[in-house]
């Protein structure tokens, strides 16, 4: 009885090993199953999903206008202080003093991509950018000013 068990054990073992070999052998002879992407070469075709969280950006229209009123809600909602808002007061056309944004500073190096700033922005001034190649040689380059120099508030945004 033991002898039968011994021999059948050997054959069962060999069959189980053979099954594993068939799996790896199948992939060896099927180069079509290769799933890796050739990254720097496929830069042109590589497109991230629309929802992809690359970095926080502030879109500007063709007249160099953005929607940020400088209210500071994003700064308040950010859990780790990645956003700093430096505001200034400008005098609008009808002569009133108004709070406006001077610099919207975004620290990409501290950002955890939690999306709270974008979700909480009342004027939808911030959106996700699709850029994902963030590597730089100097950390200070990760501190970005989101509003472009000389940009103004879009008409009709309060």
């Amino acid at each position: 009885m033991n002898v039968i068990k011994y021999i059948s054990g050997i054959f069962k073992g060999i069959i189980s090993l053979w099954k594993g070999l068939m799996v790896t052998g199948y992939y060896f002879v099927h180069p079509g199953e290769i799933v890796t992407q050739q990254y720097p070469e496929n830069r042109k075709e590589l497109k991230m999903f629309d929802a992809f969280k690359g970095e926080v950006t502030m879109p500007h229209n063709e007249n160099n206008e953005h929607k940020c009123t400088g209210c500071g809600i994003c700064e308040m909602n950010c859990p780790n202080g990645s956003i700093e808002i430096i505001s200034k007061s400008v005098i609008s056309e009808d002569g009133k003093k108004k709070r406006a944004i001077d610099q919207h500073i975004y620290h990409l190096d501290m950002c955890t991509f939690c999306e709270l700033c974008i979700k909480s922005c009342p004027s939808k001034a911030l959106v996700w950018g699709q850029e994902f190649e963030h590597a730089v040689y100097d950390r200070s380059k990760l501190t970005k000013i989101l509003n472009k120099p000389g940009s103004t508030l879009m008409k009709g945004v309060e």
Partner: peptide, 13 residues
């Protein structure tokens, strides 16, 4: 190369 092909990769290229 062989382990690359087995593992659905291309190996060194």
């Amino acid at each position: 190369k062989i382990c690359g092909f087995i593992q659905c990769r291309v190996g060194p290229n």
